[in-house]
Computed example of a mutant assay.
Amino acid sequence: MTGTDATADLGAAMAKLLLQAGAIQVSRDRPFVLAAGWASPVYVDCRRLIGAPRQRAAVTALVLTDLTRRFGAELPFDAIAGGETAGIPWATVIADRLGMKLLYVRKRPLGIGRNAQVEGAEAAGARVLLIDDLATDMASKLAFARGLRMAGAIVTDAWVLFHNQAFPGGEERLAQAGLALHALAGWPDVLRLDAQERLLDPADRAVIERFLADPAAWSAEHGGRRAPAKPMA
Rank of each mutant, 00 (worst) to 15 (best):
A195Y: 02
A91F: 11
V160H: 04
T4S: 11
T2F: 04
D96E: 14
H222T: 02
D29A: 15
R70I: 11
E74H: 07
L102V: 14
E84W: 12
R205I: 07
M1C: 01
P53K: 04
M1T: 03
D214A: 14
R54Q: 13
H163Q: 07
L34D: 00
R127M: 13
A91E: 07
L67E: 04
G3M: 13
A233Y: 00
D201S: 14
S219I: 07
E84H: 12
I24A: 06
I80H: 05
D5F: 07
G170W: 08
F211I: 07
T7Y: 10
V93H: 10
A123M: 07
P215A: 15
W90Y: 11
A126K: 09
K16S: 10
A21Q: 04
L193Q: 15
K141N: 13
P53T: 06
G223W: 09
D9M: 11
L148R: 14
L34P: 01
A143R: 14
A227G: 09
W218S: 01
A23H: 05
A166F: 03
A213Y: 14
Q55I: 06
R226A: 12
D78V: 01
G113D: 13
Y43T: 01
A158P: 06
G170N: 08
L199Q: 12
P202W: 08
R146V: 07
L75D: 00
C46N: 15
A135R: 10
V42P: 00
A12W: 14
G147T: 02
L142F: 05
I94M: 15
F211D: 01
A220M: 07
S219D: 07
T60R: 14
R69E: 03
R225D: 04
S140P: 08
R205G: 13
R127G: 04
E84S: 15
R149C: 12
A61T: 11
F77M: 05
A124C: 09
V59P: 02
W38G: 00
K230Y: 01
R30L: 14
G22N: 05
M14S: 10
W187C: 11
